[in-house]
Design a protein around this nucleic acid. Sequence first.
DNA 1: GCCAACGTTGGC
DNA 2: GCCAACGTTGGC
Length: 154
Amino acid sequence: MAKSYWLMKSEPDVYSIDHLKKDKTTWWEGVRNYQARNFMMNGMKPGDEVLFYHSNAEPPGVAGLAEITKEAAPDTAQFDPKSEYYDEKSTKANPRWMCVQVGFKAKFKDIVSLNDLREEKALAEMLVLKKGQRLSVQPVTKAEFEKIKKMGGL
DNA sequence: GCCAACGTTGGC
DNA sequence: GCCAACGTTGGC
């Protein structure tokens, strides 16, 4: 199957590209949105490439590259009553939330900011640029991925 | 900190 | 199944 390309948002105060660089891999826990979950569950596969996006950041933008290292498995945080991601309606027999494992690939020397993305005509169709688009896991095209990779100096 | 846009919940 | 109320996201 052909490789797919994605954009995944994270607030750098919570988990930044530097955290991922240090950890090497991480389970993408805490997604509590069905559309985003479905992309992880049904769309992503190991080897897929990811734009790591910093939201609620100064400036917001793509901070680097990652890849999917393991396909979706139950998000363990949903079973932990002490976690802020706890979901009392989820059971181990029938878990509601799944997440993939993500691995570090590269950090851009300079962040490719949201403004930079807006100025590129070739990226005009990207979901992340659409007003009110809050989805934290989004598909991107190969062309968009390659373009942003180049803008990031890689 | 504000607030527009959006997703989810729950009463009916 | 509708939709008002509420909570969250995320840029500014």
